[in-house]
Structures are given as structure tokens and as C-alpha cells.
């Protein structure tokens, strides 16, 4: 049963990611990314990380993905199509430069060989850890404890980082941020 669930979620993840790779529509890519993220959350649950799974769904699906979709909407070319219902406006224009196919070959080659390398490492590395038995228990308590004790400094730091990033993003995205202001000095 557990095995079955694992394979289902793994398939969801990989297929979603693959669809992101092959689709030519940015909006579709965003939705396939959603599938992948959901699959990842399922994998988290299967490896006894329930809190992280919820966090994954809330942050990625609720936050990042919405952000991405906003980004897609804000950066489509307004002059490319007057028809709003036309789905073609989000299409990634097919490349007209020479060697587009060869770039796919190069990319697939690079990624494939990287995967091969990683696979080799995984097979060769005899993780002694993986032979130990694992139990399943909720990690919410432990995470709360750890965040307030051992990881309190990273916790606060990451809070400040997040705040700074949000302020920075707001500033950057606002139309007031003129890059020319810095050109004078």
C-alpha cells in the first residue's frame, strides 16, 4: 500500500517536472509545476515529514506559484495579441535561430550524463544509514522544539532575510525604482 502510494507520488512528481520541460506554454508549465510540488509534498509525507509537507503546499502552492502566475501575467507581451482569450499569447515562441535542435541535444546530454553520474554515486555509495529501521511519528513537536532551541539563530536570520527580500522585491517591482538613479554616482 505504502509502496503503491510512493510510486504514485513519484510518478506525479517526475511526470509533472517532465511536462514543465516539454510544454511550450508558460501557464501550463506553472500548472504542471503545481503537480510536481504536490507530488513532492506527498513524498514528504511518505518520508515522515508531515509538517514539511504542509509547509511545502502552503508556501509553494499558496505563495510561490501564485507569484509565478502573477509574473506570467505581468510579463506577457501586451501588443502580441489583442484577443485576451487567445491562449497563444503565453506560448513560448518557437526559436528561429539556428541550432535550436542541437541545443536540446546538448541539454539532454548534459542532464542525462549528470543523472548517470548521480545514479552511479547512489549505487556505489553504500549508505550504512539506510539499513537502519525507521519509525513514523509526527515531527511537528520536534520541529517546534528545534526551531526555538538549536536553530533559533538561523530562524531569526531567515526571518530577517525574508523581510528584507520582501521589502526589496516591493521596491524593485515598484515603478519608482529607476535604475538610472544610480548611474550618476
Amino acid at each position: 500500500m505504502l509502496q503503491l502510494a510512493f510510486y504514485a507520488f513519484a510518478a506525479l512528481t517526475i511526470i509533472g517536472a517532465f511536462a514543465v520541460l516539454v510544454t511550450r506554454n508558460v501557464l501550463y508549465a506553472a500548472f504542471f509545476l503545481l503537480l510536481t510540488l504536490l507530488g513532492t509534498a506527498g513524498l514528504f509525507v511518505l518520508s515522515s515529514a508531515d509538517f514539511l509537507a504542509i509547509a511545502q503546499i502552503m508556501i509553494y502552492v499558496g505563495g510561490v506559484l501564485v507569484l509565478v502566475i502573477f509574473g506570467v501575467m505581468l510579463t506577457h507581451k501586451p501588443d502580441s495579441s489583442t484577443d485576451v482569450s487567445n491562449q497563444q499569447q503565453n506560448r513560448i515562441p518557437s526559436s528561429n535561430r539556428r541550432g535550436a535542435g542541437s541545443s536540446w541535444v546538448v541539454g539532454a546530454l548534459v542532464a542525462g550524463s549528470l543523472f548517470a553520474a548521480l545514479f552511479m554515486v547512489l549505487v556505489r555509495a553504500n549508505f550504512r544509514l539506510l539499513n537502519q529501521p525507521v519509525g513514523w511519528k509526527s515531527t511537528v513537536n520536534t520541529i517546534g522544539m528545534q526551531l526555538m532551541t538549536e536553530y533559533v539563530v538561523p530562524f531569526e536570520t531567515v526571518a530577517i532575510l525574508l523581510l528584507a527580500a520582501l521589502v526589496g522585491a516591493t521596491y524593485l517591482a515598484s515603478p519608482l525604482a529607476k535604475p538610472t538613479r544610480y548611474a550618476t554616482r
Partner: peptide
Amino acid sequence: ITAAVVGLLVVLWWIL
């Protein structure tokens, strides 16, 4: 980035 990853791969093969 491709060039960087290829370089990484070369190093990786070298190590393995």
C-alpha cells in the same frame, strides 16, 4: 550555465 555544468561533470567523472 551549460558550460559550468559540463565542467562540474568532468570534475565528477574525474573523482569517481
